Simulated assay, not measured.
Amino acid sequence: MVNALIRTVLGDVEPRLLGLCDAHDHLFIRSPQLPGQELGDASAARAELNAFRSVGGGGVVQWTPYGLGRRVADLPLLSRASGVHVVCATGLHQAAHYSPELLESLRGGLAEVFVSELTEGVGPSGIRAGLIKVAGGFHGLDAHARWTMTAAAEAHRATGAPIAVHLELGTGALDVLDLLCGALGVEPHRVILGHLNRSPDLVVQRQAADAGAYLAFDGPSRAHHATDWRMPDAVRALAEAGFGDRLLLGGDTVVAGARSADGGPGMPYLLRRVGPRLAVELGEELVERVFRENPARAFSVEWR
């Protein structure tokens, strides 16, 4: 893109300044689906960013959307103190994460909420979101997913913001692309598909990459998922098929116990262990591309 910028919580920056990037993670998140496991401690978030910075990290994309405890007003201070660029999201997760009353209040105006948060700022903070996060269902799209994705496409057309999609257990990628890029006309390279590592279907992954979408392999913080040990095979297969420029890596830390200070892998694990593991098998040039060049393109926008 010409004159494209990445919208961080400290303002728009040139893509090259993002540095080595955790393309999908959370500094704050609160949901009834995670009772008692909220990420809500600003000091812990700062420690995690500092730990990520200590291993060379330069940018973190927080996928926490509307209504899930983003604590957007805290993000600029954390970014400035740690020296790590932070991108925050607007958007809406699956219906199970919200009260019926909140969802009803958004009927008829969801796209406008997304556009406002991308252009005017989130609430009174004035801090603008840099991407739209939505979610699919298990092997399909329910009415809620279609509603939120339709609103996301409308907001994308108004702003150019990329759309990041939570794939439930890694499934439904092609249904998402059929809706967003087929029926709703979003260009595939503006769509980022998350959690593909949780359903290690190499055929579907290749089809999604061939369509032009970005593929995010995220979640080494998750136990009992097909993550670390299968992910290198998927990344290698996609790279050898010519899709090395479509790959992203993220940590997706969603509970306090997954943070590095609490004994979990946390954000630093991506650069401390995942990156070197991939470099042994795939070479440092590809790993550099996945951590630096690909997110710089995936999250950059000629803001409208």
Rank of each mutant, 00 (worst) to 15 (best):
A23D: 03
A23G: 08
A23H: 05
A23Y: 02
H24R: 11
H24I: 05
D25E: 12
H26V: 04
H26L: 09
H26Y: 11
L27C: 04
L27W: 03
L27N: 03
I29C: 09
I29Y: 03
S31G: 08
S31N: 09
P32L: 10
P32T: 14
P32G: 09
P32E: 13
Q33G: 01
Q33E: 14
Q33I: 14
Q33H: 09
Q33F: 05
L34F: 14
P35K: 02
P35W: 04
G36K: 09
G36I: 06
G36R: 10
Q37S: 12
Q37G: 10
Q37N: 08
E38P: 08
E38F: 13
E38G: 11
L39N: 06
L39Y: 02
G40W: 01
G40T: 06
D41C: 11
D41E: 06
D41V: 03
D41W: 03
D41I: 03
A42H: 10
A42M: 05
A42N: 06
A42Y: 04
S43C: 11
S43T: 12
S43M: 07
A44V: 08
A44Q: 10
A45H: 02
R46M: 08
R46C: 05
R46K: 07
R46S: 07
A47E: 10
A47N: 01
E48F: 00
L49S: 11
L49M: 12
L49Y: 10
N50A: 14
N50E: 15
N50C: 07
N50G: 10
N50T: 04
N50P: 01
A51Q: 09
A51K: 09
A51H: 10
A51V: 01
F52P: 02
F52Q: 02
F52I: 01
R53H: 15
R53A: 15
R53M: 08
S54W: 08
S54K: 00
V55M: 11
V55L: 05
V55I: 13
G56S: 15
G56W: 14
G57W: 00
V60M: 15
V60I: 08
V60R: 02
V60E: 00
V60H: 05
V60F: 01
V60A: 12
V60Q: 02
V61N: 04
Q62S: 14
W63H: 15
W63P: 09
T64N: 02
T64D: 06
T64E: 06
P65R: 06
P65F: 05
P65S: 13
P65H: 10
P65C: 06
Y66S: 09
Y66V: 12
G67E: 07
G67V: 07
L68T: 07
G69N: 03
G69M: 00
R70M: 02
R70P: 02
R71E: 11
R71A: 05
V72S: 12
A73W: 05
A73L: 01
D74M: 07
D74A: 14
L77I: 00
L77N: 11
L78C: 07
L78A: 08
L78T: 04
S79E: 01
S79M: 02
R80M: 11
R80E: 15
R80K: 15
A81D: 15
A81M: 06
S82W: 03
S82R: 01
